[in-house]
Design a protein around this nucleic acid. Sequence first.
RNA 1: UGGGGCGUCGCCAAGCGGUAAGGCACUGGGUUUUGAUCCCAGCAUUCGUAGGUUCGAAUCCUGCCGCCCCAGCCA
Length: 564
Amino acid sequence: MSETENSTTTNFIRQIVEQDLKTGKNDGHVHTRFPPEPNGYLHIGHAKSIVLNFGIARDYNGQCNLRFDDTNPHKENIEFVDSIQQDVRWLGYDWQDRLFYASNYFQQLHDFAVELIQAGKAYVCDLDGEQMRAYRGTLKAPGQESPYRSRSVEENLALFARMKAGDFADGERVLRAKIDMGSPNMNLRDPTLYRIRHGVIHHQTGEAWCIYPMYDYTHPVSDALEGITHSLCTLEFEDHRPLYDWVLDNISISCHPQQIEFSRLNLEYTVLSKRKLTQLVDEGFVEGWDDPRMPTVAGMRRRGYSAASIREFCLRIGITKSDGLVEMGMLENCIREDLDAHAPRRMAVMHPLKVVIENYPQGQSESLTAPNHPKDEAMGERQIDFCREVYIDQADFREQANKKYKRLVTGGEVRLRNAYVIKCEAVMKNNQGEIVELRCSYDPETLGKNPQGRKVRGVVHWVSAQHGVKGEVRLYDRLFNQANADKVEEGGRFTDNLNPDSLRTLTDCYFEPALAKAGVGEQYQFEREGYFILDSREAAREELVFNRIITLRDSWAKIDKTGG
RNA sequence: UGGGGCGUCGCCAAGCGGUAAGGCACUGGGUUUUGAUCCCAGCAUUCGUAGGUUCGAAUCCUGCCGCCCCAGCCA
Protein backbone atom coordinates (compact mmCIF):
# COMPACT_ATOMS: atom_id res chain seq x y z
CA MET A 1 0.00 0.00 0.00
CA SER A 2 1.06 3.56 -0.42
CA GLU A 3 2.54 4.26 2.92
CA THR A 4 2.99 7.90 3.70
CA GLU A 5 6.08 6.83 5.63
CA ASN A 6 8.87 9.38 5.80
CA SER A 7 7.39 11.62 3.16
CA THR A 8 4.91 14.12 4.54
CA THR A 9 4.91 12.69 8.03
CA THR A 10 6.07 15.18 10.55
CA ASN A 11 5.23 15.79 14.15
CA PHE A 12 6.56 17.78 17.04
CA ILE A 13 8.95 15.03 18.12
CA ARG A 14 10.46 14.73 14.68
CA GLN A 15 10.87 18.48 14.69
CA ILE A 16 12.82 18.28 17.93
CA VAL A 17 14.99 15.51 16.49
CA GLU A 18 15.63 17.53 13.35
CA GLN A 19 16.50 20.58 15.39
CA ASP A 20 18.92 18.53 17.50
CA LEU A 21 20.51 17.17 14.38
CA LYS A 22 20.89 20.65 13.00
CA THR A 23 22.53 21.99 16.13
CA GLY A 24 24.80 19.00 16.43
CA LYS A 25 23.38 17.82 19.73
CA ASN A 26 24.35 14.23 20.65
CA ASP A 27 27.10 14.42 18.01
CA GLY A 28 24.46 14.11 15.36
CA HIS A 29 23.23 10.74 16.60
CA VAL A 30 19.67 9.62 17.01
CA HIS A 31 19.03 6.65 19.25
CA THR A 32 15.57 5.65 20.42
CA ARG A 33 14.15 2.64 22.17
CA PHE A 34 10.90 0.76 22.52
CA PRO A 35 10.67 -0.34 26.18
CA PRO A 36 7.67 -2.60 26.91
CA GLU A 37 7.18 -4.40 30.17
CA PRO A 38 6.67 -8.09 29.39
CA ASN A 39 3.43 -8.32 31.34
CA GLY A 40 1.03 -8.73 28.42
CA TYR A 41 0.75 -8.77 24.67
CA LEU A 42 1.40 -5.74 22.53
CA HIS A 43 -1.62 -3.82 21.29
CA ILE A 44 -2.22 -1.17 18.68
CA GLY A 45 -1.28 1.54 21.15
CA HIS A 46 2.16 -0.06 21.38
CA ALA A 47 2.24 -0.18 17.61
CA LYS A 48 1.93 3.60 17.62
CA SER A 49 5.00 3.82 19.82
CA ILE A 50 6.89 1.23 17.77
CA VAL A 51 6.20 3.01 14.51
CA LEU A 52 7.29 6.28 16.12
CA ASN A 53 10.50 5.01 17.68
CA PHE A 54 11.68 2.69 14.92
CA GLY A 55 10.46 5.12 12.29
CA ILE A 56 12.50 7.98 13.68
CA ALA A 57 15.57 5.79 13.92
CA ARG A 58 15.18 4.71 10.30
CA ASP A 59 14.46 8.15 8.90
CA TYR A 60 17.28 9.92 10.69
CA ASN A 61 19.90 7.27 10.23
CA GLY A 62 19.76 6.24 13.83
CA GLN A 63 19.08 3.13 15.82
CA CYS A 64 16.24 1.84 17.91
CA ASN A 65 16.64 -0.67 20.71
CA LEU A 66 14.14 -3.17 21.95
CA ARG A 67 14.32 -3.16 25.71
CA PHE A 68 12.23 -5.12 28.16
CA ASP A 69 11.40 -3.04 31.17
CA ASP A 70 11.43 -6.08 33.42
CA THR A 71 11.72 -4.69 36.91
CA ASN A 72 8.55 -6.18 38.37
CA PRO A 73 8.99 -9.94 38.07
CA HIS A 74 5.73 -11.11 39.44
CA LYS A 75 3.69 -9.59 36.64
CA GLU A 76 6.01 -10.76 33.92
CA ASN A 77 6.78 -13.98 32.12
CA ILE A 78 8.63 -15.45 29.19
CA GLU A 79 5.51 -15.95 27.07
CA PHE A 80 5.13 -12.19 26.97
CA VAL A 81 8.83 -11.69 26.24
CA ASP A 82 8.51 -14.01 23.25
CA SER A 83 5.24 -12.65 21.93
CA ILE A 84 6.50 -9.09 22.06
CA GLN A 85 9.53 -9.92 19.96
CA GLN A 86 7.39 -11.79 17.48
CA ASP A 87 4.96 -8.89 17.21
CA VAL A 88 7.60 -6.20 16.73
CA ARG A 89 9.20 -8.29 14.03
CA TRP A 90 5.88 -8.97 12.38
CA LEU A 91 5.18 -5.26 12.32
CA GLY A 92 8.27 -4.99 10.20
CA TYR A 93 10.95 -3.72 12.53
CA ASP A 94 14.39 -5.01 13.37
CA TRP A 95 16.41 -4.22 16.48
CA GLN A 96 19.36 -6.19 15.10
CA ASP A 97 21.65 -7.09 17.99
CA ARG A 98 20.18 -4.52 20.31
CA LEU A 99 17.84 -6.58 22.44
CA PHE A 100 18.17 -5.50 26.04
CA TYR A 101 16.56 -6.05 29.38
CA ALA A 102 16.50 -3.57 32.22
CA SER A 103 17.53 -6.57 34.27
CA ASN A 104 20.82 -6.57 32.35
CA TYR A 105 21.59 -3.49 34.39
CA PHE A 106 20.64 -4.72 37.86
CA GLN A 107 24.25 -4.65 39.03
CA GLN A 108 24.90 -1.17 37.67
CA LEU A 109 21.60 0.05 39.01
CA HIS A 110 22.62 -1.27 42.40
CA ASP A 111 26.01 0.40 42.22
CA PHE A 112 24.50 3.75 41.27
CA ALA A 113 22.15 3.37 44.21
CA VAL A 114 25.12 2.91 46.49
CA GLU A 115 26.53 6.05 44.95
CA LEU A 116 23.37 7.95 45.78
CA ILE A 117 23.50 6.68 49.35
CA GLN A 118 27.12 7.74 49.67
CA ALA A 119 26.23 11.18 48.42
CA GLY A 120 23.50 11.39 51.04
CA LYS A 121 20.84 11.39 48.33
CA ALA A 122 19.16 8.13 49.14
CA TYR A 123 18.18 6.39 52.35
CA VAL A 124 16.66 3.21 53.64
CA CYS A 125 13.20 3.77 55.02
CA ASP A 126 11.37 1.49 57.45
CA LEU A 127 7.92 2.95 56.97
CA ASP A 128 5.36 0.46 55.73
CA GLY A 129 3.10 1.16 52.80
CA GLU A 130 0.32 2.66 54.79
CA GLN A 131 2.61 4.91 56.79
CA MET A 132 4.37 6.02 53.67
CA ARG A 133 1.13 7.07 52.15
CA ALA A 134 0.27 9.07 55.23
CA TYR A 135 3.65 10.78 55.23
CA ARG A 136 3.41 11.57 51.53
CA GLY A 137 0.71 14.16 52.08
CA THR A 138 -1.98 14.82 49.51
CA LEU A 139 -2.28 16.58 46.18
CA LYS A 140 -2.86 19.84 48.00
CA ALA A 141 -0.93 19.36 51.22
CA PRO A 142 2.80 18.81 51.54
CA GLY A 143 4.17 15.58 52.95
CA GLN A 144 6.15 14.95 56.12
CA GLU A 145 9.69 13.73 56.18
CA SER A 146 10.20 10.13 57.16
CA PRO A 147 11.75 9.64 60.61
CA TYR A 148 14.37 7.46 58.86
CA ARG A 149 15.36 10.20 56.46
CA SER A 150 18.35 11.37 58.46
CA ARG A 151 20.09 8.04 58.88
CA SER A 152 23.82 8.20 58.41
CA VAL A 153 25.44 7.18 55.18
CA GLU A 154 27.09 4.25 56.94
CA GLU A 155 23.83 3.01 58.35
CA ASN A 156 22.10 3.35 54.99
CA LEU A 157 24.91 1.51 53.26
CA ALA A 158 24.73 -1.31 55.78
CA LEU A 159 20.96 -1.51 55.62
CA PHE A 160 20.88 -1.48 51.83
CA ALA A 161 23.48 -4.25 51.80
CA ARG A 162 21.28 -6.27 54.13
CA MET A 163 18.25 -5.62 51.92
CA LYS A 164 20.21 -7.01 49.04
CA ALA A 165 21.44 -9.92 51.11
CA GLY A 166 17.89 -10.93 51.93
CA ASP A 167 17.90 -10.03 55.61
CA PHE A 168 14.50 -8.38 55.40
CA ALA A 169 11.06 -9.54 54.40
CA ASP A 170 9.02 -8.11 51.59
CA GLY A 171 7.79 -4.65 52.47
CA GLU A 172 9.96 -4.30 55.52
CA ARG A 173 12.23 -1.68 54.05
CA VAL A 174 12.70 0.30 50.85
CA LEU A 175 15.41 2.52 49.46
CA ARG A 176 14.21 6.03 48.80
CA ALA A 177 15.59 9.05 47.04
CA LYS A 178 16.03 12.05 49.31
CA ILE A 179 14.47 14.87 47.34
CA ASP A 180 11.67 17.05 48.69
CA MET A 181 8.67 15.97 50.74
CA GLY A 182 7.15 19.37 50.16
CA SER A 183 7.30 19.29 46.41
CA PRO A 184 4.06 20.07 44.59
CA ASN A 185 5.07 17.22 42.32
CA MET A 186 4.20 14.01 44.14
CA ASN A 187 6.89 12.12 42.25
CA LEU A 188 9.55 14.13 43.99
CA ARG A 189 8.38 13.38 47.54
CA ASP A 190 11.17 10.93 48.26
CA PRO A 191 10.17 8.31 45.70
CA THR A 192 10.95 4.64 46.26
CA LEU A 193 13.98 3.41 44.36
CA TYR A 194 14.14 -0.21 45.47
CA ARG A 195 11.73 -2.67 47.01
CA ILE A 196 12.16 -6.18 48.33
CA ARG A 197 10.62 -9.15 46.49
CA HIS A 198 11.27 -12.65 47.76
CA GLY A 199 10.01 -15.88 46.33
CA VAL A 200 9.69 -14.80 42.73
CA ILE A 201 11.76 -16.24 39.96
CA HIS A 202 12.64 -13.53 37.52
CA HIS A 203 12.41 -14.71 33.93
CA GLN A 204 15.92 -13.39 33.23
CA THR A 205 17.80 -13.25 36.51
CA GLY A 206 16.17 -16.11 38.33
CA GLU A 207 16.73 -15.77 42.06
CA ALA A 208 19.90 -13.72 41.86
CA TRP A 209 18.17 -10.67 43.29
CA CYS A 210 15.63 -10.07 45.99
CA ILE A 211 15.63 -6.31 45.60
CA TYR A 212 14.15 -4.82 42.46
CA PRO A 213 14.55 -1.25 41.21
CA MET A 214 11.50 0.86 40.45
CA TYR A 215 10.61 2.16 37.00
CA ASP A 216 11.37 5.80 37.80
CA TYR A 217 14.87 4.91 38.82
CA THR A 218 15.53 2.19 36.27
CA HIS A 219 14.33 3.95 33.19
CA PRO A 220 16.65 6.95 33.07
CA VAL A 221 19.63 4.78 33.95
CA SER A 222 18.80 2.18 31.31
CA ASP A 223 18.33 4.90 28.71
CA ALA A 224 21.61 6.53 29.62
CA LEU A 225 23.52 3.25 29.66
CA GLU A 226 22.29 2.51 26.15
CA GLY A 227 23.15 5.96 24.87
CA ILE A 228 19.56 6.81 24.07
CA THR A 229 19.19 10.35 22.76
CA HIS A 230 15.42 10.74 22.73
CA SER A 231 13.37 8.82 25.28
CA LEU A 232 9.81 8.87 24.03
CA CYS A 233 6.96 7.96 26.32
CA THR A 234 3.32 8.72 26.92
CA LEU A 235 1.78 11.75 28.56
CA GLU A 236 1.18 10.26 32.00
CA PHE A 237 4.93 10.32 32.55
CA GLU A 238 5.12 14.04 32.05
CA ASP A 239 5.44 14.81 35.73
CA HIS A 240 7.94 11.99 36.16
CA ARG A 241 10.35 13.87 33.95
CA PRO A 242 11.81 15.95 36.80
CA LEU A 243 12.59 12.68 38.57
CA TYR A 244 14.06 11.20 35.39
CA ASP A 245 16.35 14.21 35.21
CA TRP A 246 17.10 14.15 38.94
CA VAL A 247 18.38 10.59 38.75
CA LEU A 248 20.73 11.34 35.87
CA ASP A 249 21.90 14.58 37.44
CA ASN A 250 22.84 12.82 40.65
CA ILE A 251 24.74 9.75 39.53
CA SER A 252 28.07 9.58 37.76
CA ILE A 253 26.87 9.10 34.25
CA SER A 254 27.42 11.55 31.45
CA CYS A 255 24.69 10.58 29.01
CA HIS A 256 21.45 12.42 29.62
CA PRO A 257 18.66 11.52 27.19
CA GLN A 258 15.77 13.88 26.64
CA GLN A 259 12.41 12.52 27.68
CA ILE A 260 9.59 13.64 25.40
CA GLU A 261 5.97 12.74 25.97
CA PHE A 262 3.16 12.20 23.49
CA SER A 263 -0.45 11.20 23.91
CA ARG A 264 -1.43 7.58 24.00
CA LEU A 265 -3.83 6.10 21.49
CA ASN A 266 -7.50 5.78 22.30
CA LEU A 267 -9.62 3.89 19.81
CA GLU A 268 -13.40 3.79 19.68
CA TYR A 269 -15.23 0.63 20.74
CA THR A 270 -12.23 -1.03 22.33
CA VAL A 271 -9.95 -0.74 25.34
CA LEU A 272 -6.23 -0.21 25.19
CA SER A 273 -5.03 -0.69 28.69
CA LYS A 274 -3.05 -3.79 29.51
CA ARG A 275 -4.91 -4.13 32.77
CA LYS A 276 -8.25 -4.32 31.01
CA LEU A 277 -7.04 -6.51 28.19
CA THR A 278 -5.63 -8.88 30.80
CA GLN A 279 -9.03 -9.01 32.45
CA LEU A 280 -10.75 -9.83 29.18
CA VAL A 281 -8.37 -12.74 28.73
CA ASP A 282 -8.24 -13.96 32.32
CA GLU A 283 -11.98 -13.77 32.86
CA GLY A 284 -12.77 -15.52 29.61
CA PHE A 285 -14.56 -12.73 27.81
CA VAL A 286 -12.41 -13.52 24.80
CA GLU A 287 -10.58 -16.62 23.59
CA GLY A 288 -7.15 -15.31 24.45
CA TRP A 289 -4.70 -12.55 23.67
CA ASP A 290 -4.96 -13.39 20.00
CA ASP A 291 -8.74 -13.44 19.85
CA PRO A 292 -9.55 -11.75 16.52
CA ARG A 293 -11.66 -9.17 18.32
CA MET A 294 -8.78 -8.01 20.49
CA PRO A 295 -6.89 -4.81 19.64
CA THR A 296 -3.65 -6.72 20.25
CA VAL A 297 -1.13 -7.11 17.49
CA ALA A 298 -1.58 -10.88 17.78
CA GLY A 299 -5.36 -10.56 17.61
CA MET A 300 -5.28 -8.22 14.66
CA ARG A 301 -2.84 -10.50 12.86
CA ARG A 302 -5.14 -13.48 13.39
CA ARG A 303 -8.10 -11.35 12.35
CA GLY A 304 -6.30 -10.67 9.09
CA TYR A 305 -5.00 -7.13 9.42
CA SER A 306 -1.77 -6.63 7.55
CA ALA A 307 1.29 -5.16 9.22
CA ALA A 308 1.38 -2.49 6.50
CA SER A 309 -2.16 -1.38 7.30
CA ILE A 310 -1.37 -1.07 11.00
CA ARG A 311 1.75 0.94 10.23
CA GLU A 312 -0.21 3.18 7.91
CA PHE A 313 -2.83 3.73 10.57
CA CYS A 314 -0.18 4.71 13.07
CA LEU A 315 1.20 7.24 10.64
CA ARG A 316 -2.17 8.71 9.81
CA ILE A 317 -3.23 9.36 13.37
CA GLY A 318 -0.10 11.35 14.00
CA ILE A 319 1.78 12.20 17.17
CA THR A 320 0.64 15.04 19.40
CA LYS A 321 0.11 15.86 23.04
CA SER A 322 -3.64 16.21 22.84
CA ASP A 323 -5.67 13.21 23.86
CA GLY A 324 -8.33 12.09 21.49
CA LEU A 325 -10.51 9.16 20.61
CA VAL A 326 -9.83 7.87 17.13
CA GLU A 327 -12.75 6.59 15.08
CA MET A 328 -12.73 2.95 14.01
CA GLY A 329 -13.38 4.17 10.49
CA MET A 330 -9.83 5.41 10.36
CA LEU A 331 -8.43 1.94 11.03
CA GLU A 332 -10.98 0.28 8.78
CA ASN A 333 -10.07 2.50 5.89
CA CYS A 334 -6.42 1.53 6.24
CA ILE A 335 -7.09 -2.18 6.00
CA ARG A 336 -9.63 -1.81 3.20
CA GLU A 337 -7.20 0.25 1.17
CA ASP A 338 -4.47 -2.34 1.52
CA LEU A 339 -6.67 -5.35 0.88
CA ASP A 340 -8.51 -3.81 -2.05
CA ALA A 341 -5.19 -3.51 -3.81
CA HIS A 342 -3.71 -6.83 -2.76
CA ALA A 343 -6.37 -9.41 -1.94
CA PRO A 344 -7.34 -11.89 -4.66
CA ARG A 345 -11.10 -12.07 -5.31
CA ARG A 346 -13.12 -15.18 -4.58
CA MET A 347 -16.77 -16.07 -4.19
CA ALA A 348 -18.40 -17.47 -1.10
CA VAL A 349 -22.03 -17.74 -0.09
CA MET A 350 -22.76 -17.38 3.58
CA HIS A 351 -26.55 -17.68 3.73
CA PRO A 352 -27.17 -20.15 0.93
CA LEU A 353 -30.32 -20.23 -1.15
CA LYS A 354 -30.43 -22.95 -3.78
CA VAL A 355 -31.01 -21.95 -7.38
CA VAL A 356 -31.90 -24.59 -9.97
CA ILE A 357 -31.26 -23.51 -13.53
CA GLU A 358 -33.90 -25.52 -15.32
CA ASN A 359 -32.70 -25.03 -18.87
CA TYR A 360 -29.13 -26.02 -18.04
CA PRO A 361 -28.61 -29.69 -18.88
CA GLN A 362 -28.69 -32.12 -15.99
CA GLY A 363 -25.30 -33.62 -15.17
CA GLN A 364 -23.42 -31.04 -17.22
CA SER A 365 -20.91 -28.59 -15.90
CA GLU A 366 -18.35 -26.19 -17.30
CA SER A 367 -15.26 -24.44 -16.12
CA LEU A 368 -15.35 -20.66 -16.30
CA THR A 369 -12.44 -18.29 -16.03
CA ALA A 370 -12.50 -15.42 -13.59
CA PRO A 371 -9.87 -12.77 -12.89
CA ASN A 372 -8.31 -12.72 -9.45
CA HIS A 373 -8.46 -8.95 -9.41
CA PRO A 374 -10.61 -6.55 -11.39
CA LYS A 375 -7.80 -4.08 -12.00
CA ASP A 376 -4.57 -5.95 -11.51
CA GLU A 377 -4.15 -8.44 -14.32
CA ALA A 378 -0.82 -9.53 -12.95
CA MET A 379 -2.71 -11.32 -10.22
CA GLY A 380 -3.90 -13.81 -12.78
CA GLU A 381 -7.11 -15.77 -12.96
CA ARG A 382 -8.68 -18.94 -11.70
CA GLN A 383 -11.25 -21.49 -12.85
CA ILE A 384 -14.75 -21.61 -11.44
CA ASP A 385 -17.14 -24.50 -11.96
CA PHE A 386 -20.65 -23.79 -13.13
CA CYS A 387 -23.50 -26.26 -13.24
CA ARG A 388 -27.25 -26.67 -12.98
CA GLU A 389 -27.53 -25.97 -9.29
CA VAL A 390 -25.85 -23.08 -7.56
CA TYR A 391 -26.19 -21.21 -4.28
CA ILE A 392 -26.73 -17.50 -4.03
CA ASP A 393 -27.13 -15.48 -0.85
CA GLN A 394 -30.58 -15.22 0.69
CA ALA A 395 -30.17 -11.44 0.82
CA ASP A 396 -29.86 -11.36 -2.96
CA PHE A 397 -33.42 -12.44 -3.61
CA ARG A 398 -36.73 -10.79 -2.77
CA GLU A 399 -40.10 -11.87 -4.03
CA GLN A 400 -40.82 -8.27 -4.81
CA ALA A 401 -39.01 -5.01 -4.33
CA ASN A 402 -38.94 -1.51 -5.69
CA LYS A 403 -36.53 -0.48 -8.42
CA LYS A 404 -33.82 0.53 -5.98
CA TYR A 405 -33.29 -3.15 -5.30
CA LYS A 406 -30.86 -4.26 -7.97
CA ARG A 407 -30.84 -7.97 -7.21
CA LEU A 408 -33.01 -10.92 -8.12
CA VAL A 409 -36.80 -10.67 -7.86
CA THR A 410 -39.54 -13.00 -9.06
CA GLY A 411 -39.65 -12.80 -12.82
CA GLY A 412 -36.55 -10.60 -12.88
CA GLU A 413 -33.03 -11.04 -14.12
CA VAL A 414 -29.66 -10.79 -12.46
CA ARG A 415 -26.12 -11.61 -13.47
CA LEU A 416 -24.26 -14.33 -11.74
CA ARG A 417 -20.84 -12.82 -11.26
CA ASN A 418 -18.33 -14.12 -13.78
CA ALA A 419 -21.05 -16.26 -15.39
CA TYR A 420 -24.46 -15.97 -16.99
CA VAL A 421 -27.57 -13.87 -16.59
CA ILE A 422 -30.37 -15.82 -14.96
CA LYS A 423 -34.06 -15.14 -14.63
CA CYS A 424 -36.20 -16.17 -11.71
CA GLU A 425 -39.09 -18.27 -13.00
CA ALA A 426 -40.54 -19.65 -9.77
CA VAL A 427 -40.16 -19.59 -6.03
CA MET A 428 -40.39 -22.84 -4.05
CA LYS A 429 -41.54 -22.69 -0.44
CA ASN A 430 -41.89 -25.16 2.39
CA ASN A 431 -44.91 -25.72 4.61
CA GLN A 432 -44.02 -22.72 6.74
CA GLY A 433 -44.00 -20.51 3.72
CA GLU A 434 -40.22 -20.08 3.78
CA ILE A 435 -38.40 -19.78 0.52
CA VAL A 436 -36.30 -22.89 0.04
CA GLU A 437 -35.37 -22.85 -3.62
CA LEU A 438 -35.53 -20.76 -6.76
CA ARG A 439 -36.31 -22.09 -10.21
CA CYS A 440 -34.49 -20.08 -12.82
CA SER A 441 -33.51 -20.08 -16.45
CA TYR A 442 -30.25 -18.86 -17.88
CA ASP A 443 -29.37 -17.02 -21.07
CA PRO A 444 -26.48 -18.88 -22.73
CA GLU A 445 -25.65 -15.79 -24.78
CA THR A 446 -24.61 -13.74 -21.77
CA LEU A 447 -21.28 -15.28 -20.85
CA GLY A 448 -18.75 -12.49 -20.99
CA LYS A 449 -21.16 -10.14 -22.72
CA ASN A 450 -24.30 -8.19 -22.01
CA PRO A 451 -27.65 -9.35 -23.32
CA GLN A 452 -29.14 -7.68 -26.37
CA GLY A 453 -31.86 -5.15 -25.97
CA ARG A 454 -32.18 -5.13 -22.20
CA LYS A 455 -30.18 -4.00 -19.22
CA VAL A 456 -29.39 -6.23 -16.30
CA ARG A 457 -28.40 -4.03 -13.41
CA GLY A 458 -27.69 -6.50 -10.67
CA VAL A 459 -24.74 -8.79 -10.16
CA VAL A 460 -24.70 -11.42 -7.45
CA HIS A 461 -22.04 -13.86 -6.34
CA TRP A 462 -22.68 -17.59 -6.28
CA VAL A 463 -21.09 -20.98 -5.68
CA SER A 464 -21.77 -24.22 -7.52
CA ALA A 465 -23.78 -26.57 -5.34
CA GLN A 466 -21.95 -29.52 -6.83
CA HIS A 467 -18.42 -28.13 -6.68
CA GLY A 468 -18.53 -25.74 -3.75
CA VAL A 469 -16.75 -26.51 -0.50
CA LYS A 470 -18.73 -26.28 2.68
CA GLY A 471 -17.27 -24.52 5.70
CA GLU A 472 -17.48 -22.01 8.46
CA VAL A 473 -17.17 -18.26 8.64
CA ARG A 474 -16.72 -16.13 11.73
CA LEU A 475 -18.07 -12.62 11.59
CA TYR A 476 -16.60 -10.13 13.98
CA ASP A 477 -18.09 -6.90 15.15
CA ARG A 478 -16.86 -4.27 17.56
CA LEU A 479 -15.93 -5.69 20.97
CA PHE A 480 -17.78 -2.98 22.88
CA ASN A 481 -21.07 -1.17 22.42
CA GLN A 482 -19.81 2.16 23.65
CA ALA A 483 -17.54 4.32 21.54
CA ASN A 484 -15.74 5.17 24.73
CA ALA A 485 -15.50 1.65 26.10
CA ASP A 486 -13.72 2.79 29.26
CA LYS A 487 -16.59 4.92 30.36
CA VAL A 488 -18.80 3.16 32.87
CA GLU A 489 -21.84 3.97 34.94
CA GLU A 490 -21.37 4.56 38.63
CA GLY A 491 -20.64 1.21 40.21
CA GLY A 492 -20.38 -0.51 36.83
CA ARG A 493 -17.54 -2.32 35.14
CA PHE A 494 -16.09 -1.71 31.72
CA THR A 495 -17.11 -5.24 30.80
CA ASP A 496 -20.73 -4.08 31.04
CA ASN A 497 -20.05 -2.34 27.75
CA LEU A 498 -19.08 -5.56 25.98
CA ASN A 499 -20.99 -6.22 22.77
CA PRO A 500 -22.75 -9.59 23.14
CA ASP A 501 -22.82 -9.97 19.37
CA SER A 502 -19.17 -9.33 18.69
CA LEU A 503 -18.82 -12.84 17.27
CA ARG A 504 -21.26 -14.61 14.99
CA THR A 505 -20.44 -18.00 13.53
CA LEU A 506 -21.97 -19.21 10.29
CA THR A 507 -21.52 -22.93 9.74
CA ASP A 508 -23.43 -23.45 6.52
CA CYS A 509 -21.26 -21.53 4.08
CA TYR A 510 -20.13 -22.51 0.58
CA PHE A 511 -16.78 -21.51 -0.87
CA GLU A 512 -15.69 -21.72 -4.47
CA PRO A 513 -13.27 -24.64 -5.01
CA ALA A 514 -10.17 -22.46 -5.37
CA LEU A 515 -10.57 -21.54 -1.72
CA ALA A 516 -9.84 -25.10 -0.66
CA LYS A 517 -6.21 -24.27 -1.34
CA ALA A 518 -6.22 -21.12 0.79
CA GLY A 519 -3.11 -20.85 2.92
CA VAL A 520 -2.49 -19.42 6.36
CA GLY A 521 -1.95 -15.68 6.21
CA GLU A 522 -3.54 -15.20 2.78
CA GLN A 523 -6.25 -12.60 2.67
CA TYR A 524 -9.07 -12.82 0.15
CA GLN A 525 -11.91 -10.64 -0.85
CA PHE A 526 -15.15 -12.58 -0.97
CA GLU A 527 -16.82 -10.47 -3.59
CA ARG A 528 -19.65 -8.28 -2.40
CA GLU A 529 -19.08 -9.46 1.18
CA GLY A 530 -15.76 -8.38 2.55
CA TYR A 531 -12.22 -9.49 3.25
CA PHE A 532 -11.48 -12.85 4.81
CA ILE A 533 -8.59 -14.96 6.00
CA LEU A 534 -8.23 -18.56 7.07
CA ASP A 535 -8.22 -18.71 10.85
CA SER A 536 -4.67 -19.63 11.74
CA ARG A 537 -5.71 -21.60 14.80
CA GLU A 538 -8.17 -23.69 12.83
CA ALA A 539 -6.01 -24.17 9.76
CA ALA A 540 -5.21 -27.76 10.67
CA ARG A 541 -8.89 -28.66 10.70
CA GLU A 542 -10.35 -30.55 7.78
CA GLU A 543 -13.09 -27.96 7.40
CA LEU A 544 -12.35 -24.47 6.16
CA VAL A 545 -12.78 -21.75 8.78
CA PHE A 546 -12.54 -18.15 7.65
CA ASN A 547 -12.38 -14.99 9.72
CA ARG A 548 -13.99 -11.89 8.37
CA ILE A 549 -11.40 -9.14 8.56
CA ILE A 550 -13.69 -6.32 7.55
CA THR A 551 -16.78 -5.86 5.41
CA LEU A 552 -16.72 -4.00 2.14
CA ARG A 553 -18.03 -0.47 2.35
CA ASP A 554 -21.77 -0.91 1.97
CA SER A 555 -23.75 2.02 0.64
CA TRP A 556 -26.71 -0.26 -0.09
CA ALA A 557 -27.19 -0.90 3.62
CA LYS A 558 -27.92 2.78 4.12
CA ILE A 559 -30.35 3.01 1.22
CA ASP A 560 -32.11 -0.17 2.30
CA LYS A 561 -32.48 1.03 5.85
CA THR A 562 -33.98 4.33 4.80
CA GLY A 563 -36.73 2.50 2.93
CA GLY A 564 -35.15 1.52 -0.38
C1' U B 1 0.09 24.25 48.53
C1' G B 2 -1.43 22.05 44.70
C1' G B 3 1.43 20.55 40.31
C1' G B 4 1.76 19.06 35.16
C1' G B 5 -0.63 19.02 30.32
C1' C B 6 -4.30 19.82 26.40
C1' G B 7 -8.32 22.74 23.59
C1' U B 8 -7.97 24.19 15.01
C1' C B 9 -14.40 20.92 10.71
C1' G B 10 -18.21 14.92 13.14
C1' C B 11 -12.91 12.17 14.05
C1' C B 12 -7.44 12.53 13.45
C1' A B 13 -4.20 16.51 12.21
C1' A B 14 -0.92 20.57 9.61
C1' G B 15 -0.10 25.43 10.95
C1' C B 16 5.39 28.25 14.47
C1' G B 17 2.84 36.91 13.18
C1' G B 18 1.29 37.71 6.48
C1' U B 19 -4.65 36.24 5.93
C1' A B 20 -7.14 28.04 7.81
C1' A B 21 -2.90 21.89 4.43
C1' G B 22 -4.14 16.87 4.33
C1' G B 23 -6.50 12.19 5.73
C1' C B 24 -10.94 9.72 7.61
C1' A B 25 -16.22 10.44 7.68
C1' C B 26 -20.16 12.70 5.18
C1' U B 27 -23.07 14.74 0.67
C1' G B 28 -23.85 15.11 -4.58
C1' G B 29 -22.44 13.40 -9.74
C1' G B 30 -19.75 9.94 -13.34
C1' U B 31 -17.56 4.96 -14.68
C1' U B 32 -18.28 -0.20 -13.31
C1' U B 33 -20.16 -7.94 -14.58
C1' U B 34 -18.40 -6.44 -6.73
C1' G B 35 -24.44 -1.34 -4.36
C1' A B 36 -16.75 -2.50 -3.94
C1' U B 37 -12.81 0.13 -6.29
C1' C B 38 -11.82 4.44 -9.19
C1' C B 39 -12.88 9.58 -10.89
C1' C B 40 -14.95 14.55 -10.21
C1' A B 41 -17.29 18.18 -7.06
C1' G B 42 -18.84 19.97 -2.17
C1' C B 43 -17.65 20.16 3.05
C1' A B 44 -14.02 25.77 9.13
C1' U B 45 -14.76 33.90 6.92
C1' U B 46 -12.81 30.85 11.44
C1' C B 47 -9.08 28.23 15.37
C1' G B 48 -12.64 26.91 23.59
C1' U B 49 -13.96 32.03 25.22
C1' A B 50 -13.37 37.42 26.47
C1' G B 51 -10.15 41.21 26.10
C1' G B 52 -5.18 43.29 24.76
C1' U B 53 -0.60 44.13 21.49
C1' U B 54 0.04 44.72 16.02
C1' C B 55 -0.83 47.55 9.57
C1' G B 56 -1.93 42.34 10.25
C1' A B 57 -3.20 37.14 15.43
C1' A B 58 -5.01 30.16 15.20
C1' U B 59 0.05 31.85 16.03
C1' C B 60 2.34 36.95 21.06
C1' C B 61 0.12 38.76 26.15
C1' U B 62 -3.83 38.58 30.07
C1' G B 63 -8.24 36.77 32.29
C1' C B 64 -11.99 33.08 32.19
C1' C B 65 -14.16 28.18 30.72
C1' G B 66 -13.69 22.97 29.60
C1' C B 67 -11.08 18.25 29.47
C1' C B 68 -6.90 14.82 30.87
C1' C B 69 -2.86 13.10 34.30
C1' C B 70 -0.52 12.74 39.44
C1' A B 71 -1.18 10.87 46.44
C1' G B 72 1.91 2.12 43.89
C1' C B 73 6.95 -0.82 47.66
C1' C B 74 2.98 -0.86 39.09
C1' A B 75 4.94 0.55 34.41
